[in-house]
Nucleic acid binder design. Structure first.
Length: 596
RNA sequence: GGUUCCGUAGUUCAAUGGAUAGAAUGAAGGAUUCCGGUUCCUUUGAUUGGGGUUCGAGUCCCCACGGGAUCACCA
């Protein structure tokens, strides 16, 4: 039993004993004592004053006295205003340290929780490469999945690739017209970039045609936009695709193949992956039958023109189209269909969609309609919504070409890491390959940390230069601290000292105890996973830990300590701290280099 | 305009309704550097405004102001 639950139980007991009142455990507020006060854990006593009918100070003293005499580990207590600060014995903290040191997977829950999640993230379009916004999506999706796994939940990571529609046809038309049979291989490009270029090429041609129609034929802009020949060609191609035209489907298959191969490379470098990949081309017709059944059941209604709608005005929303006049599906219809199939297939406790906040409305409506259609799983649909990523130069706008490409960005980060590192020459003795591996870890660590440390729902500003700084609240700073710990341990090992379990007779200094306390907090931080910000919590926790270690390291001579048992204890503390950092950062997908 | 999210030091980010709102970075000064690009200390500086609920509000409620997103027979 850890000290928190013991304290909670005893406080309940004390309130009953002293004031004859029953309180529930969730009413007991325990928090880490602020540094400026003596003590380790603080009980907020305000809630009990209504039972004690005494001042907060007096109540705190009575409870403190009870705890002190009933719990061995409670060394002392003090009361400041309405806060009961409890001091825990050093022996307890040392035991915690020893316990943690035995568990290399510290921070992970080892038993299964029995809960299961499906997490959909990434969900790219196959007409252009991934950009900075996708990076936030991918990192969040992957990290949240890892955190849920660490909590003992079963997690299925899935990707729904949007591989059909007019946008794909645009790239296809442009390729047909302008490529002269070129392929990614023939021009030496990544497939997603190659296809993306033709998408841009389409847009350029389209704009030129619209302009031409306006000046030469005197059409107004709206009309010109509808009549541009290249757009008509793309629309025609979509019809052919849907009709299963062989040549069109073959081209579609080839070009999608190029793109997906490119995506795979990006995902690999980013360090994310999926248990299952869905393709919209295989699912886009789903949902239609469900909607028709809803119509038959009177949950939905049909307009004179033939289209099918859901009336959500009763829920403060609008009417939502589900089937067009011609009977075909829209995005919402497909999502209802895929959700239905997924819940049939896996019956998970929660289905989390990691999608940008521009689709908040969509998911609100999705859950609502599924509920109206009578599906029990409607409230298991969760939307992990995240804000846009902006750059110091301002917003990304695809129209203005200010979109930051994911591959380019990662490559630039790696280049920066290489330059900084080579200047400092700390990797001398490493082979070129080993060194490259370190640069990659640092670069991606910088990127991931910077993005994940921010509350997902907030619009954030990504500054590449700041992110790769070796100081401050950054990934590389934490990696650096970790590398230094490894270096100290190597040095110690060379001298023949390998940290063993620490003796319980050692007197702990404040700094040492502080560090142990922080390490002990890791499972709680991971346990926050239900909230959407848990990656941010973990990131900021890792930083606190690294910073605390630096202070600890600065204050004590680890390698020069002459007392063997003290030296052993400090080495052990360093080792455990390093492992905690590694585990916490691991859930963010950030790798720790042993040297950098 | 409707809906919704956000608004915290110069800047980038924190703060389960709890104590004197924390870091980082920037600027100024000082101390230290046991393998490390250090590290530490001091100074500077913030809850958009107004009401309300509460023992207690950056956090919850209402209003105003400012910003983002969304409001397609696109996905």
């Amino acid at each position: 039993m850890n000290i928190e639950s013991l304290l909670t139980a005893k406080v309940i007991e004390a309130v009953k004993e002293c004031y004859g009142a029953e309180v529930e455990s969730d009413k007991i507020q325990l928090q880490a004592t602020r540094k400026e006060f003596a003590g380790d854990l603080t009980v907020v006593v305000f809630p009990f004053t209504r039972f004690s009918k005494k001042s907060p100070e007096e109540t705190g003293k009575e409870l403190g006295e009870y705890l002190k005499s009933h719990i061995e580990e409670v060394k002392d207590y003090n009361v400041v205003k309405g806060f009961l600060n409890v001091e825990i014995s050093s022996a307890y903290w040392l035991e915690v340290l020893n316990e943690v040191s035995r568990d290399s997977k510290y921070g992970y829950r080892h038993e299964k929780s029995g809960h299961s999640y499906m997490i959909e993230y990434s969900s790219p379009n196959t007409n252009k490469p991934l950009h900075l916004g996708h990076i936030r999506n991918n990192l969040l999706g992957w990290s949240v999945s890892e955190i849920q796994k660490a909590n003992g939940h079963e997690v299925k990571m899935v990707n729904l690739v949007n591989d059909r529609g007019i946008h794909i046809c645009k790239s296809m038309i442009a390729w047909k017209k302008f490529a002269n049979g070129a392929t990614p291989e023939s021009v030496g490009m990544k497939g997603d970039h190659f296809v993306g270029d033709y998408y841009v090429r389409f847009d350029k041609e389209y704009k030129a045609q619209v302009k031409q129609l306006m000046t030469e034929k005197g059409l107004d802009e709206e009309e010109a936009k509808k009549q541009a020949p290249i757009l008509l060609e793309a629309q025609d191609m979509l019809r052919k695709w849907e009709a299963g035209d062989e040549e069109t489907v073959a081209l579609w298959r080839t070009m999608n193949g190029w793109v997906l191969k490119g995506f795979d490379e990006t995902y690999r470098l980013m360090g994310v992956g999926f248990d299952k990949v869905y393709f919209e081309s295989q699912t886009y017709k789903k949902g239609r039958d469900i909607v028709l059944k809803g119509l038959a059941d009177g949950v939905l209604y049909r307009k004179d023109t033939g289209s099918v709608w859901a009336d959500l005005t009763g829920d403060g929303l609008d009417h939502k189209l589900l089937l067009r006049d011609d009977g075909t599906s829209v995005y919402m219809t497909q999502d209802i269909g895929t959700a239905y199939e997924r819940f049939n297939e896996f019956d998970m406790d929660e289905m989390i969609y990691v999608v940008g906040n521009e689709q908040n409305y969509h998911f609100q409506v999705l859950s609502l309609i599924c509920g109206k259609l009578g599906f029990a799983w409607a409230n298991k649909i969760k939307h992990l919504s995240y804000g846009m990523v902006e750059l110091p130069e301002g917003k990304m706008k695809s129209r203005e070409g200010t979109v930051v490409d994911a591959d380019d960005l990662m490559q630039e980060m790696i280049n920066t890491a290489r330059e900084t590192s080579q200047e400092l020459g700390k990797l001398d003795g490493y082979s070129a390959e080993e060194a490259e591996d370190v640069y990659r870890k640092v670069a991606l660590g910088a990127l991931k940390y910077f993005i994940l440390k921010v509350d997902p729902k907030k619009t954030m500003l990504f500054n590449p230069k700041e992110s790769i700084d070796f100081n401050g609240n950054t990934g590389p700073f934490i990696q650096y601290t970790y590398a230094r710990i490894q270096s100290v341990l190597r040095k110690a090992a060379e001298a023949g000292t390998v940290p063993q379990e620490a003796s319980v007779h050692i007197a702990l200094s404040e700094k040492e105890q502080q560090l142990i306390k922080l390490i002990a907090k890791l499972p709680d931080v991971v346990g926050e996973a239900g909230t959407t910000y848990s990656p941010a919590l973990l990131a900021n926790y890792s930083y606190d830990l690294a910073k605390e270690f630096n202070q600890f390291y600065h204050d004590f001579s680890i390698l020069k300590e002459e007392n063997d048992s003290v030296k052993n204890f400090r080495l052990l503390l360093a080792k455990v701290c390093g492992e905690a950092i590694k585990n916490a950062m691991g859930m963010l997908g950030i790798e720790m280099p042993d040297r950098m």
